[in-house]
Simulated assay, not measured.
Amino acid sequence: MSESGFSTRAIHAGQRPDPGNGSVAPAIWATSTYAQDGVGGLRSGYEYSRSANPTRTALEECLAALEGGAHGFAFASGLAAEDTLLRTIGRPGAHVVIPDDAYGGTYRLFAKVHEPWGLRYTPAPLDDLAAVAAAIVPGETTAVWVETPTNPLLGVADIAAVAELAHAAGALLIVDNTFASPYLQQPLGLGADVVVHSTTKYCGGHSDVIGGALVTDDDALAERLRYFQNAIGGVAGPFDAWLVLRGLRTLAVRMERHCDNAERVAAYLVDHARVAEVFYPGLDSHPGHTVAKAQMRRFGGMVSFRVAAGEQAAVDLCGRTEVFTLGESLGGVESLIEHPGRMTHASVAGTALEVPADLVRLSVGIEDADDLIADLDRALA
Rank of each mutant, 00 (worst) to 15 (best):
S4A: 13
G5M: 03
H12L: 13
H12F: 12
A13G: 04
P17Q: 05
G22P: 06
W29K: 10
A30F: 09
D37M: 07
Y46I: 14
S51M: 12
P54Y: 07
T57P: 08
L63W: 02
A65C: 10
L66S: 05
H71F: 15
F75D: 12
A76Y: 00
S77K: 03
E82G: 07
E82Y: 00
L86D: 08
R87D: 10
I89F: 13
V96L: 11
V96K: 06
V97T: 06
P99W: 04
Y103H: 04
R108I: 13
W117D: 12
W117E: 15
G118A: 09
P125Y: 14
D127H: 13
D128E: 06
L129F: 13
A134P: 11
A134V: 06
E140T: 07
V146K: 05
G155Q: 15
G155F: 10
E164V: 14
A171H: 07
L172V: 10
L172E: 04
L173N: 08
L173A: 05
L173S: 00
V175L: 03
T178P: 00
T178D: 01
S181C: 13
P182W: 01
Y183F: 15
Q185C: 15
Q186M: 15
G189D: 10
D193F: 03
S198A: 06
S198D: 11
S207D: 15
V209T: 13
I210Q: 15
G211S: 14
D218A: 10
D218Y: 01
L221G: 02
E223G: 15
E223Q: 10
R226Y: 10
Y227A: 13
A231I: 03
A231G: 03
A231K: 10
G234W: 08
G234R: 06
V235F: 02
F239I: 02
V244W: 08
R246Y: 02
G247I: 08
G247C: 04
L248K: 09
L251H: 00
R257H: 02
R257W: 08
R257F: 08
N261C: 07
N261A: 15
A262P: 09
A262V: 07
Y268Q: 12
L269F: 02
R274G: 14
Y280N: 15
D284V: 09
D284L: 03
D284A: 11
V291F: 01
A292V: 04
K293S: 15
R298T: 14
F299Y: 15
S304R: 12
V307N: 11
A309V: 07
A309Y: 00
G310D: 14
E311I: 11
Q312F: 04
A313L: 03
C318Y: 05
T321V: 11
F324W: 12
F324R: 12
T325V: 06
L326V: 12
E328Q: 13
S329R: 04
G331D: 14
R342I: 13
A346P: 00
V348C: 09
T351K: 07
L353R: 02
E354D: 14
D358E: 06
R361K: 06
V364A: 14
I366R: 10
D370Y: 01
L372Q: 12
L372A: 04
D377F: 03
R378S: 07
R378T: 11
R378I: 14
L380V: 05
A381F: 00
